[in-house]
C-alpha cells in the first residue's frame, strides 16, 4: 500500500473515533448513550494503562485500583452544591495521582519484571482488603450514590448516563487524546520517548530518567482515577468489582488491540472491542473467557495493534529500516514509542 493511502486511513480512523464519540450519542437513544458512556470510561483506563506501559515502562496490572479509588471517592463527594462536580473530579484525580506517585516511587526502583509482579501483588492485596472492609467499601454489593443531581458552576447536572454528564466526560477524553497528539511534537515528549526507549542512555545523557517515569506513572494513575469518577457518576453505584485485576486486563487488551504507544490506540481499541464483547455477552455470559483468548492471540500474533500495524506499514513503504535498527519485536518499548512518529 502507498504511504499516503495508509496515512489517510490512519487519519480517517482517528477522526472517525472522535466523531463517533462526540456525535453518536446526540443521534442515538438513551441505551446507546449509556453504551458510549461505558466506552468513554474504559478509554480513560486504557489510556492510563498505555501511558504507564509505553512511557513509564511499567506494565501495570493495578490501574483498576486507581480507577476504583476515583470511583469510591466520588461517593462521599457527590452533592447538589455548585462546587460538587469540580471538587469530585479534582479530589479523585489528585488522590489517584498521589496513589500513583507513592506506589510508583517503589515501582520505578525495581528491575526487570519485578515492577509488573509488584502491581499484581498490590492488586490482590488491595482487593482482598477491600472485600473484607465491607463497612467502608460495601464489598461486592457496593455502595449506592443516592444524590439525583450534582452541582456544576451553578447548574444541576443529572446523575447517571445523562447527556450533560456524557459530554462532561467525553470532551476531556477527546482533549486528552488530541493533546497527547500535539504533545508528541514537543521537545519534552522527545525526552519522554528517550527515557522510555533506553533508560540507561537517557540517564547517561544527564536526564533524571526515574523522575520522568515516576511523573508519567502518577499521571497515568490520575487519568485512570478520572475515568473511575465518571464511572461512579454514570452508574451511581460503586463496588469492589471496579478494583479487580480482570478490569485492568480488559484495559490492557483495549490498549494492545488499538496500538500501544500511540495517541489514539487505546481509544480505537475500546471502540473496536467493547461493542463486540457487549454483543457477545447477550448470548454468552462468560465473556472473560473470550477476552482472555483474544488477549492470548493478540499478544502472540498481533502485538502492534491496529494503529501500530498501520504505522509500521507506512514506515516500511517510506524507508526500509536500516540493519542496525531492525523492526523490533512486537510491543518492545522501542516499538511502542516508534509507533508514534513525531513528524
Amino acid at each position: 500500500m502507498h504511504r499516503n493511502a495508509i496515512s489517510t486511513l490512519v487519519n480517517a480512523l482517528q477522526a472517525a473515533a472522535v466523531g463517533l464519540l462526540l456525535l453518536a450519542p446526540l443521534l442515538a437513544g438513551d441505551y446507546w448513550r449509556f453504551f458510549f458512556f461505558q466506552m468513554v470510561v474504559m478509554a480513560y483506563l486504557a489510556i492510563g494503562f498505555d501511558l504507564s506501559y509505553s512511557y513509564a515502562r511499567i506494565l501495570s496490572f493495578m490501574h483498576a485500583l486507581f480507577f476504583g479509588l476515583g470511583a469510591y471517592l466520588a461517593v462521599p463527594l457527590v452533592s447538589a452544591a455548585p462546587w460538587s462536580l469540580p471538587a469530585t473530579l479534582f479530589v479523585a484525580t489528585a488522590a489517584a495521582g498521589l496513589a500513583g506517585l507513592v506506589s510508583g516511587a517503589v515501582l520505578v526502583r525495581m528491575e526487570n519484571h519485578n515492577p509488573t509482579i509488584a502491581t499484581v501483588i498490590l492488586s490482590s492485596i488491595v482487593l482482598l482488603a477491600a472485600n473484607s472492609m465491607t463497612s467502608v467499601t460495601g464489598g461486592e454489593d457496593g455502595l449506592i450514590i443516592h444524590a439525583r443531581t450534582i452541582g456544576f458552576l451553578g447548574l444541576e447536572i443529572g446523575m447517571g448516563p445523562t447527556m450533560a454528564l456524557y459530554y462532561l466526560a467525553a470532551i476531556p477524553l477527546v482533549a486528552l487524546v488530541v493533546g497527547r497528539l500535539l504533545l508528541q511534537r514537543t521537545e519534552t515528549w522527545m525526552l519522554v520517548r528517550a527515557v522510555a526507549q533506553n533508560e540507561t542512555r537517557a540517564r547517561q545523557l544527564g536526564f533524571d530518567a526515574r523522575a520522568w517515569r515516576l511523573i508519567l506513572f502518577a499521571a497515568s494513575a490520575a487519568i485512570a482515577g478520572l475515568g473511575g469518577v465518571f464511572y461512579a457518576l454514570m452508574m451511581q453505584h460503586v463496588s469492589t468489582s471496579s478494583l479487580e485485576v480482570g478490569l485492568s486486563i480488559n484495559a490492557i487488551l483495549y490498549a494492545a488491540i488499538g496500538g500501544l504507544g500511540t495517541a489514539f490506540g487505546p481509544l480505537v481499541g475500546v471502540l473496536l472491542i467493547y461493542p463486540i464483547t457487549e454483543v457477545i455477552s447477550l448470548y454468552f455470559i462468560y465473556v472473560p473467557i473470550l477476552v482472555g483468548l483474544v488477549l492470548i492471540i493478540v499478544s502472540l500474533f498481533f502485538g502492534r495493534g491496529v494503529i501500530g500495524t498501520l504505522r509500521s506499514l507506512e514506515d516500511q513503504t517510506d524507508h526500509p529500516r536500516a540493519p542496525d535498527n531492525p523492526a523490533p519485536e512486537a510491543m518492545t518499548h522501542d516499538e511502542a514509542a516508534a509507533g508514534a512518529p513525531s513528524r
Partner: peptide
C-alpha cells in the same frame, strides 16, 4: 503459548499468560 513466547519481549509472555489466567478462571466458573 510458552514456546511461542520464548526469546520475545517479556511483555508478550505476561500478556499471553494474563489471557490464560482470565480464560482458565472463567472456564472453571
Amino acid at each position: 503459548i510458552f514456546e511461542r513466547v520464548l526469546h520475545r519481549d517479556p511483555a508478550v509472555g505476561l500478556l499471553a499468560t494474563a489471557g490464560v489466567f482470565l480464560t482458565l478462571d472463567n472456564t472453571v466458573l
